[in-house]
Every structure is written in structure tokens, then in C-alpha cells.
Design a protein around this nucleic acid. Structure first.
Lengths: 192, 192, 192, 192
DNA sequence: GATGAATGAGTGTTCATTCAT
DNA sequence: CATGAATGAACACTCATTCAT
């Protein structure tokens, strides 16, 4: 990639990062480009120099989540027992959501599925989890009333459910704790 | 209640009902008051005669859900075994969501919690479910690692999670089936 | 037509009329809706209450021209000798252009032909003129090297050419005189 | 002229030439400087190095027309009979308009007269034509009801009228043929 | 000379809300 | 009670132009 393009991308990321705190307080759609720009300390023109449409910012935001999972979560969970790994993944998710401001988590749970796909998030996530569930079934630890794929779907559904609920409650409770409590039930529900 | 007030309320309900089909196809926020009014066959002025703000319409919409639960669900589930009742409640929820148009279910799962409270939904729901969980614990069927209140919360969280996911997927899968599958896991997770 | 609709249309016309003086000084496309509205003494919202798009104003403007021709020109030229009638029509055209402000004439000569058709202008005009040329040929006064239709086209081409030129020169010369001079040549060119 | 200036001018012309194809498809005003620059393969900065304002490009474009007439048309028409030369000039004009893309011809006929003057187009053209008309009158071939200057004006008015009409019709008809037909009438109108 | 990031006033358009009739 | 004309701030987005590198 050329130096120029690289610089462009870096600037893009800078803007995205600068915008995140703002995203924390107001739903993305209710955020005007003007507000975004003053928050990021750039002009409207500059914004549109780096993003074609307002919604492109959102895609960029999602890409960051992907990056995070890719860099910080997956490597640490490559090995170990199945149930602790599933518990840990859920915890990492909760931590991420908690750390990266409320509204970013609203984003995670509010983006149209099609967009989610575009950002590649689903796939990397799904493949990773299917692997774990498959292993669990092979080791006789997890019910095989469901396929690894279906388990993955239901697991993500639980994760997203909590994320959504938490952000809908404007982060008024401890999401890590709630996630742990919920996962206890859920994992018990699939264990043999 | 005075005759006048009654008539007011009736007219309000008429407007709400007239608007529901429209809500089915477009997200509430993207619906202009003008559109709402032509759909309902009333003038903008009339709308503002019956509703103070556009968002009041939404509150009214939610109240209808409450009414539905009150009239059709609770009575049928007053008695019986605990787990089947919890399963049945979840099914009723799914059926309601499925029947009452996609977008209305989006509403259910998208309204700010504060509004939800206003509509009283939570309370009636919560009281009803806490009763069931309490009974289950007394009968030694359900774990007592959690209070009835917490179980209710986690249960509703699961319900809402599925509702949200389904509407986010634009109703592309069978919500009743998914709900059943998910509840199997969840109820197994809290059973002794 | 209902009283309501009538009133709507009247108001529309009022706005159009109020805007004409402004149109006189700046090309339509370079005129912002804001400017139009302050000129007409209405709010932007009102403008969009009466016109769906900015360009609808233009269509309305053209309709007025049509009306004018229909009401003032055609009736006076229903009968008489061919060449004087053609001369008179050109004069009326020039007078209209002159009286109705410079920019309105710019409009006449700047509208996309498709729009012109929409407004029906072409048709009524063309039918009227074809009749005259046909009569002239039957009376042996006009060359029949061209069909009435082609003569009409070339005649209108001449008219529009002058209109355009005059408005492009910002009305700096006497258009009636120029029209007369030009028509002398043109009509001599088609006479036998 | 200094070497530097010369190089500047050459670069200017290169840019203009590079832009012409683009001008062919979109009206000049709807063309952003950015688009122009990517089409020309230069940076915005460079553009503003060679042109003070966007509209200067247009002036340059017009100058090219002048050059063309100067180099290709006038020399070929220096001598010969008056009427054929007038016919030929009109044909050359039509051919030029036809060849040099629709939009360029729109330019020719849409530029503010003041700009036209600036480019000097009028003068060279006018002098040339006045000469021909004068000769025609002296030879007793052309009416002397009009001065050579007025004849020139009316002649150019005809030319421009057709050009404008053709480009307004987006080049949907054969301009050379139309020009010939029209000139037949017009020249017959001034002949003795 | 050349670059392209940065600017910000400006665009057409929408829409919740008010209020005179 | 009902109407719909009127409002104007707000919106996403554009673009000619400047200027530091």
C-alpha cells in the first residue's frame, strides 16, 4: 500500500477514534454530521473527504471491533477447556462492550446484519466459536441436540441480547456480572 | 371518567389502530407526522389535538401490548406446572411478536426503557413471572442460586434478545421455533 | 374542483408571480430556494408545501406562458392573411418576452425541451402555426419546399433564437424591432 | 513571450484539451473542479496554479473555437462568390459544433456575452462576415435594406439559434442538414 | 511546480410543531 | 373539534477555493 493511502487510512482511524466518545452518549442516527465533526475537531468538508457517507463512519467503527477481537481475544482463547473458554469469550465481549463506551456497544447490537457481514465480523467470530462447540461435543461435554453452528447462533444471540439490554439501560448495571450470571445458566443448559 | 375524556381516549385508540399497519413497514422514527396522519385519515391538527408529541403515539402503541398480555396471556397461564407455563409464556410472546407485524415488534424491543416503564408493561409482566419463579423454587424444581426477581430479569432478557434478533433479521426465520429451542437450553439451565 | 384545491392553486400562482421579478435578475439554477423564499415573502417550509421540488416552480412559470398565449395571442390571430398573422405572432412573442421580465424569457428559452412538452406549450403552439403555414401553401403564398410542420419548426427556431440572444444580451436592445427586422428576412425567404 | 510563460500556456492548453471529453457529457456548471482534475489527471492544486477560477477554463475553451475558425475556416473562405461563402461558413460552423462534442457547443451558445467578447471571438468573426456582406451588396446580390453590420448580426443570430436549439435537443437531429435548410430560407430572404 | 488535505458557507429538502380559521 | 397553511431549525451532503508541505 502506498504511503499516501496509508496516511489516509491512519487519518480515518484518528477521526473514528475521536468520534467514539461522542458516540457514547447519543445514538448514531441521532448524531448529526455537524456534531460529529465538531467532536472530532474537523470540518464537515474534511469528514466527507475521508468518508463517502455518514454511515461509512459506522462501518469503520465496526471494523475496529473486529480488529480488537482478532488481536486481543482469539489468540488468548486458542486453547484450553471448552466451557471456560466459552465463559472467557463472553467475559471478553462484556469487557469490550464496557470499555468501549456505551454507544459503541449500541452500534454492535444495532447495525443491520448485512453490514455486520460486510465488516467480516460474523465470519471470524462464527468460525472461532463453531470450533469450540465442535470440540466440546467431541469431548462429550456438550449436548449434541444442536449442531455446532446452531449452538454458535444461540450463544451469540445470548451475547447480543445482553449487550442490547445493557445499552438500552444506558449502562446502569454491571455488564460483566450480568454476563457471568447469564452464562452460568446458559452453559449449564447445554452441558451434559 | 367523564364522557368527554372517554371519547377522547376512544379517538386516540382509533388513531393508534389506524396507524399500526403503517408502522409495520417503516421504522417509527422514519415516519413523518404527515404520513401518519394521511394513513390515519386525519389532519395534522387533529393528531396534535390527541397527542402532545409524536412520540406519545409510541407510548400508546406499547400500551396495546400490555393490554394484549393482560387479556390473552396471563389468564391462560394462571395455573399449572411451572416449567410448562414458562415455556408457554415464551411461546405466547413469540406468537404475539410474529402476529403483530415485524415493525411493531421492533418497537417493543426498541423503546427506551423509561417509556416501557411509563406504559406499565414491565410491572405487570414482572409480577406475573416472579410469581411463577417463586413457585418453582418452592416446589424444588428451579435453582435457588438466583432470586425470583433476578430469574425474571434474566428470563425477560432472553425473550427480548430473541425478539430483537428476529426483527433485526427482518423476520427471516421462524421465531416460535427459535424461541422453543432457546428456551429448552435456558430452562434446562435453571432446572434442578 | 374543490374550494380547497382552488385556494391551493391560487396561492401557488401568487408565489410564482411574487418570484418572477427575482427570476428577472438571476438564472433560475443559480437561485437558491432560500432566496426565492425571501423574495416571495414565504418560509422555506411553505415553499415546499406548494411545490414538491424547486424545479416545479419552473414548470409553473412555463404554464403561465402557455396561459398567456392561449388567452391573449391565439384568439386575436384566428383569422386574416397568412403573412401578417405570422408577423403578428412573432411580435406578440417579442412583446410577451419583453414584458414578462428578462429572466422569464430566459426560462422560455432555457427549459429542457422535455419540460416544454410536459407543459403542453409546444403542442398548442405547433398546432396553431401548422395551420397557418398550411393555409399559406394552399393559397400559393408560401413555398412548399417544406412541410407545414418543418416550416413551423424553423419558424419557432427563429423565434427562440432571437429570444435567447436578447436575454443573453440582458435585454440591451429592442427586441420588438429586432424581431421585426429578422422576420422580414425570414418571411421573405419563404414567400413565393 | 518568455520561455516560462510559453510553457505555462502550453500546460494550460493541455489541461483544457484533457478536459474536453468530459465536458462532452456533463454541463460545465455541474462539473466539479475535483472531477475536472481527475479527468485531466492533475491535482486540484495544479488546476488552481494554471487557472484563477473554475470559469477561466471555460474562457480557454472558447479561445480554442476562435483558433479553429482562424486556422481552418477563414483561410478557406477568403475568396469566391458571396452566397456560397455564406452557406459554406454556416456549414463549417455546423460541422465544428457537431464534431466538437455536444457540450462544447452548449458552451459556445451558453457563455455570457461578456465572456465571449473577452475571448475575442466576436470580433474576428464579425469583421470577416461584414466583409462578405459588404461585397455582396456591392455586387448587387444582397439587399441593402440592412447595413453589413446588421446583416452580420442577424446572420450570427441565426447560426447561434440553430446551435442552441440543437444542443438543447441534445443533438438528436442532424445539425448540418438543419443548418442547410435554414440557410436556404435565410439567404433567399436577403437575396435580390 | 505539484499535491491533496482542509475549509465552511451553501445547497435542496424534511419535518415536528403551532395556530388562525 | 377539525383543519392544513405556515414555520424555520435542522439535516446530509457539495464544492470552489486555499495553503502547508
Amino acid at each position: 500500500m502506498s504511503k499516501v493511502k496509508e496516511k489516509q487510512l491512519r487519518r480515518r482511524s484518528e477521526i473514528i477514534e475521536a468520534v467514539i466518545p461522542l458516540i457514547g452518549s447519543v445514538p448514531f442516527e441521532q448524531l448529526s454530521v455537524n456534531e460529529i465533526c465538531s467532536a472530532a475537531g474537523i470540518s464537515v468538508g474534511s469528514f466527507y473527504h475521508y468518508f463517502e457517507k455518514k454511515s461509512d463512519l459506522l462501518v469503520g467503527l465496526l471494523a475496529l471491533i473486529d480488529e480488537y477481537l482478532e488481536e486481543n481475544v482469539y489468540p488468548a482463547l486458542r486453547e484450553g477447556e471448552v466451557l471456560p473458554r466459552l465463559r472467557a469469550f463472553a467475559q471478553e465481549w462484556a469487557i469490550y462492550v464496557e470499555n468501549h463506551s456505551l454507544e459503541r456497544s449500541k452500534l454492535i447490537s444495532s447495525v443491520e446484519p448485512s453490514n455486520t457481514d460486510l465488516s467480516g465480523q460474523k465470519r471470524s467470530c462464527v468460525i472461532f466459536l463453531e470450533g469450540i462447540f465442535g470440540q466440546g461435543q467431541r469431548e462429550g461435554l456438550i449436548t449434541d441436540s444442536y449442531s455446532p453452528h446452531e449452538l454458535t447462533e444461540l450463544y451469540l444471540l445470548a451475547l447480543r441480547g445482553i449487550t442490547t439490554d445493557w445499552s438500552r439501560n444506558n449502562g446502569r448495571y454491571n455488564i460483566r456480572e450480568k454476563m457471568a450470571r447469564y452464562m452460568d445458566i446458559w452453559l449449564r443448559g447445554i452441558s451434559l
